[in-house]
Simulated scan of single mutants.
Amino acid sequence: MKIWRIPSFLIGSIVLFLLIAGSIVYGLFYHSYIPQTSFAYNDAGDLQGPPFAPFEFSFLGTDHAGNHLAPTLLMGAKYTIGGVIAIALIAMLLAFLLGTVLGFNKGRHLRTLMKNSLFSFYFIPGSLLAYLILKPFLWEPFEGFQHSLAERIVIQIMVIGILLVPPASLLIADSIREILQTEYILASVTLGASRWHLFRLHVLPGIRTTLLQLLFRCLVQAFLIIGHLSIFKLFFGGTKVSYDPFSPSPPAPITNEWFSFMGNYYDSFLTGATWLLWVPLLAIIVTIVSFQLLINGIQKYFQQ
């Protein structure tokens, strides 16, 4: 069976493709223009100001500045989805290389030392480490950012990706060690099979399911870390900070990334504008479900 004929893979890939492609196309053809409704009159003729609820004057409502949420979230899709995919792929690549070395390493003392060192990362919150490392890069100083937006995004993706490597590499190493201890592998070694032969014909097919499950875990962890940073006003791509004493303004995101949008308006439930939280949250849930469907489809394809 062709992989695109698997319903779960088809649905997940279509949703993710439409979100990313729609975000890129909208930015190119509409020049990132976001409609704005600064004020409006209700049925009674009274003047109203933003934020406006969904279906009132726009499809998904507006934020406190009157910006329509639908194009705002569409513009942020490429940052959110593209960012977590890049983080997960970097984490998986580094974890796969490190886990393979640990799994094939026969030196017990060296393997135990590296395993104990990496195991300590299970008890250190990745969000805390990411905050401490990334704040000098993402929090705008008084003299302005020293790095461009693209550089800050690359730095953030690399740092979060590296922080996800230790737990993932341990899981891969344990899976490889378990496969290498099976009887048919030991028999192959006795007959003179090389490590490359074992890796290509036995280990790689054996850990394929583990890698797919680990990929989904890295995607979810990337979502969580970006979300935690946004709660502490460390937004994706950088935080705009005002140092003007005559016109102070709270820290604000530079991009329309979904978690940054939620972090910027996380106190909206106190003002009654709850759609500023649940609308991007629904978009995040749809994205996570799409990733799960996509990975499940790939898993079914390998099983067949």
Rank of each mutant, 00 (worst) to 15 (best):
V289R: 09
S127A: 14
S249G: 13
L93K: 06
N42M: 11
Q48V: 00
V241Y: 06
I225R: 01
G45D: 13
L132G: 03
L93E: 06
H31K: 14
Q156E: 15
T80S: 15
A168C: 08
L98E: 04
A95M: 07
V241C: 07
I179C: 10
W4R: 12
T239R: 03
S175F: 03
H109N: 14
L219Y: 05
Y266F: 12
Y79C: 04
I185Y: 05
C218S: 11
L270S: 11
M75H: 06
M75G: 01
L94I: 14
P248H: 09
H64L: 12
Y265F: 13
G144N: 08
F9A: 04
E56D: 13
L198W: 08
W196K: 13
V84E: 06
W275G: 00
Q48C: 03
Q221K: 07
F259I: 06
F199I: 12
F123D: 08
L164F: 08
A65H: 10
G227K: 03
I133L: 11
W139E: 08
P205N: 15
L138T: 04
G12L: 10
G107A: 11
L234G: 01
S8A: 14
F96I: 07
F291A: 11
F57L: 12
D244E: 11
A86Q: 12
T255W: 02
F123N: 08
G206A: 13
L270C: 03
Y30P: 01
V165R: 02
Y122S: 11
S230I: 02
S194A: 11
T255L: 09
N264H: 14
L69D: 00
A70W: 13
T210W: 02
F232A: 12
I81T: 04
L69A: 00
L229G: 03
L224W: 10
D63G: 03
L282P: 01
T72L: 03
A95G: 10
A77T: 03
Q292L: 09
S249E: 14
G161A: 06
H31F: 09
T271D: 02
L28T: 11
F119I: 04
L191Q: 12
P54V: 01
P51V: 02
